[in-house]
Amino acid sequence: MTVKNSLAEHSSALAQRRNDVSLTRYSGRFAPSPTGPLHFGSLITAVASYCDAKAHQGSWLVRIEDTDIPRIYPGSEDHILRAMDAFCFESDTPIIFQKDRLDIYEAVIDELRQQDLVYACQCTRKMLGSNHIYQDTCRHLGLGFEGQAIRLKVEDVEICFDDPLQGTHCSHLRQDLGDFVLKRRDGIINYQLAVVVDDYLQGMTHVVRGADLLDNTERQIYLGQLLGYPRLNYIHLPLAMNDQGQKLSKQNMAQALDLSKAPELLQQAIQALHQAHVDLDTPDRMLKQAVAQWNIDHIPHTTALQGYYL
C-alpha cells in the first residue's frame, strides 16, 4: 500500500469515526513490546486491562508494538502469543503487529507535514546531552526530511487528564517536554506516533497501562488532538518492583513468565491488584471470577506496589 493510499484510508477512517456511536462502548487493549518475554509486571497489566474492559461489558484486544524492529528479542513474539493462550486471554479482534503497518504511520506523518506541524531534526543524542527538554535547535532550520529525525511542533499549552488511580496529571508541553520525535533518524517509527494512531484506528476508548508511561500521556493526548482523534480515558497502574527497588522490566532482567504455572501466577497478579480472592482453577474460570468481582478502586492509588516480585 502506498503512502497516498494509506493517507486516504486514514482520512476516511477519521471522518467515519467522528460519527461512530460505537465509541461510546468500552474498548480496551493489551499492547506489549516484544523486546523480551512477558514478565510478572506484564501479566498485571494484562489482567487489569482485560478485567476492566470485560467488567464494563466492553471489548478487549491484543496488539504487538514492534515498530522498533532492531530491538525485537528472538522468540519474544512467540512467547507473548503462547502466554495469551496459557492464561486464556482471548483478543476480540485479530492480533495486529505494528511492523506490518508502517505505511499507515508514514501516511500520518505526511499528513502532519502538509499542515506544517513537523520538521526535520539532525540532532543526535550526543549533541543533545542530558537535557530531556528539546531546545528547538532545528525547528527553524528548514532541513530536508530525508535521513533526518522528524519532530512534532509543540505549542505552549497545558495538557491535563484525570486518572482514577493517579489523580490529575498535567504538563506544560513546551516547558516540560518540548518538541518530540515521531520518527527517528534511522527510520524507526516512534512509539508516541504508532500508539496514538493505532489506538484511534482500533477504536480504543480506554487505556490501562503501567505508571511508567504516565509522562507519555500528555504527548499522546496532544498529538491525538492535532489529528482530530477523540480523547481516551487513561488508567496508570502501580508498578511491580524487584528487590532492588527497580520496576520489573526486560532491561532489569525480570524473569519470564513460567507458562506451566499460569493458574498460580494469575492468582498472584489478581492479589497484587488488591482484588477479591479468586479460587485456584483453570485460567478461564479464574478470569471469569476476577471479572465478576472486579473493582478498580481497590487497586493502590500509588505508582508502585508494596513488596517485591520476581
Rank of each mutant, 00 (worst) to 15 (best):
L226I: 15
L182N: 02
Y200L: 04
N233Y: 03
P230V: 09
L232N: 08
E218P: 13
V195Y: 00
L223F: 09
G210D: 01
V196A: 08
D186C: 14
A240D: 08
L182H: 11
G187F: 00
K261R: 14
Q251T: 08
T282G: 11
Y200V: 02
K247N: 05
A262Y: 00
M286W: 03
Y200N: 13
H277V: 14
G210H: 02
N242H: 06
Y222D: 01
A272H: 03
L214M: 15
Q192A: 12
L237E: 04
D212I: 05
I235A: 14
L266C: 02
S260D: 11
L232Q: 13
L201P: 00
L273H: 00
M253A: 14
G245H: 10
V197G: 00
G224T: 09
N216E: 07
G228I: 09
A211E: 05
Q267W: 06
R285D: 10
Y234L: 10
L273I: 04
E264C: 01
L223W: 03
A272F: 01
I189A: 08
Q246N: 15
Q244M: 13
I270Q: 07
A276Y: 11
L201Q: 02
Q271R: 13
R209P: 07
T217V: 09
L201K: 01
L223Y: 05
E218W: 04
D281V: 03
D243C: 08
L193Y: 07
L193E: 05
Q267H: 13
L232W: 14
G203S: 12
Q267N: 10
